[in-house]
Design a protein around this nucleic acid. Structure first.
Lengths: 130, 130
DNA sequence: TTACATGCAAATGCTTTGCAGTACT
DNA sequence: AGTACTGCAAAGCATTTGCATGTAA
């Protein structure tokens, strides 16, 4: 993605377009809809010849998440997993090879309990473990 | 619960009925279907006058979980949460007061994607954040 | 008595934080 | 210039582990 475009996206989110944020954003959105943890990003950075400290990577990912540029995947793991897919969707988790796959909302029919007011629902997380 | 009964349950799960395991089991199943983390168990133990080290509490909870005596709740938190309810069910998470509530499977209608073979599904986790 | 469990403290691994220096606006 | 961000290392926190001691079978 052209750096000017990335800069604009960051500015629109009230994030200063620093070298590190631009580099991480570029790496994250080079491929679409994938799942990553902080250490994967760190590895990808150094593979791309960009040295960014672990602390900064955590800060940048948390900033991106806070601004809604990326989402978090709820999964029972010792690391936090993020997702470039920020639209409503669910996940399939392959417990054998520990890999995550997206499930689009139109592929799942779900009706919540009547006792829950629809307006109160902030998010519905569904993880299908196979 | 009578200690003899607890001892039998532990023995049936191939767990030696030690003083600590009995005490923790007793505390866990004194109330039904509740959610707890290791530090809550530790607190409940000392409130009951039983001093059990943190390491042992983690070991015992993990043993109980491995034997299917308790279940784990998948939730985006810095601590692990367990559940005495081991039947298939889902959760509502109140993000305001950070409390969990059970949802019985008959209260939710869900149909999984056709692309997933039913026999492959190990578990379906649903968390409704309100 | 023999295998297994506990206690304690140290180690681990992810994540956050404090602060001095650096870069964006 | 002023403010925000980064780098680094240290701190934090939940959890696991190693080993000597203790306890169930």
């Amino acid at each position: 993605m052209p750096y000017e475009k990335i800069k604009n996206i960051l500015r629109q989110s009230n994030l200063r377009p620093t070298k590190q944020r631009i580099a991480i954003f570029d790496i994250l959105f080079r491929q679409e809809n994938w799942h990553f943890s902080a250490d994967i990003v760190e590895k990808k950075c150094s593979e791309s010849g960009v040295k960014i400290s672990a602390g900064t990577i955590y800060n940048v990912l948390n900033d991106f998440y806070a601004k809604g540029l990326i989402s978090k995947v709820m999964i029972d793991d010792d690391r936090s997993w993020f997702d470039t897919n920020i639209s409503d969707h669910f996940h399939v988790y392959d417990t054998k090879d520990r890999k995550l796959y997206d499930v689009e909302p139109e592929d799942i029919d779900i009706s919540l309990p009547k006792s829950i007011k629809e307006d109160d629902v902030k998010k519905v997380e569904i993880l299908i473990k196979v």
